[in-house]
Write a protein that binds this DNA or RNA. Sequence first.
DNA 1: AAAGATTATTCAACACTGTAGAAAAAAAGT
DNA 2: ACTTTTTTTCTACAGTGTTGAATAATCTTT
Lengths: 140, 140
Amino acid sequence: MILNKEFDILKRTGLSVTEGRKKILELFLETEGALAHADIEKNTDAVFDRVTVYRTLQTFVEKGIIHQIPTIDNSILYALCKHDCAQGHHHDNHVHFLCNTCNKTVCLDDVVVPTVKLPKGFTPALSAMTVTGVCNDCKA
Amino acid sequence: MILNKEFDILKRTGLSVTEGRKKILELFLETEGALAHADIEKNTDAVFDRVTVYRTLQTFVEKGIIHQIPTIDNSILYALCKHDCAQGHHHDNHVHFLCNTCNKTVCLDDVVVPTVKLPKGFTPALSAMTVTGVCNDCKA
DNA sequence: AAAGATTATTCAACACTGTAGAAAAAAAGT
DNA sequence: ACTTTTTTTCTACAGTGTTGAATAATCTTT
């Protein structure tokens, strides 16, 4: 039995191994930076139905394989969870960086979102932080 | 000449004073928390065309009257700029709070987004931070 | 206050994004 | 290999946001 990384991940999370899931997972593994639904449709040459892609992404999020990234425009981005994300509770408390030059969004896995002091009466649960600027690939 | 707040703001930013702009601005002034396009359509009883609302919001953002708030789902939220936002460059470097109970988003105008140390090669320009949890209105 | 110039609003149409239910197809378990 | 379970696909729908051109309103000037 040939074990590739995609197969391994799917098996470990208890998911059925299908062409679509392997292909989309492969895309995430070989892509530096986050992907939007549209990117996935483009890069899989529209082999899969739109709905399949949506449902696959939902499943991956639920299983802790990928996580969503907040954006200032209205699009949902997804990126691989680097650290051990168990089903249901993600550990994606890292900062995201959006490059204004190449327009890519990357996870700064080692930069933890700092805690801030909130006004009286506010109880924090989760914090998200996005920094925009110029990334290491685009620096002059 | 009667000067109300909406009129004043529109005049000061050099905008034509119209029913739609006054109404939408009024809604922002009397609303605690951020508004989505859909909220505005609902609360103005669909008196205005959808496109008018979109264009009005765009204009307000450009003129520094309101600013956009990043969300994890795919919707654009808008909120009044409290501090002096000149045309073109906003000063909305404050933290946003999304309440999981009442589902409202509010600007924590006095909580500044902290700066983080980025990896080598990354140059920051703007930072955004959203905290989710329970707000002061919803605390038990 | 009225006329012309400028700016806003509206209408119609379009593209994109995301969701739901049911049928068809594929994968998993025995 | 067969049955059960899961996944993919199809069809359809609702929402969101944008564009261009026509209409309507606002502003400026006299």
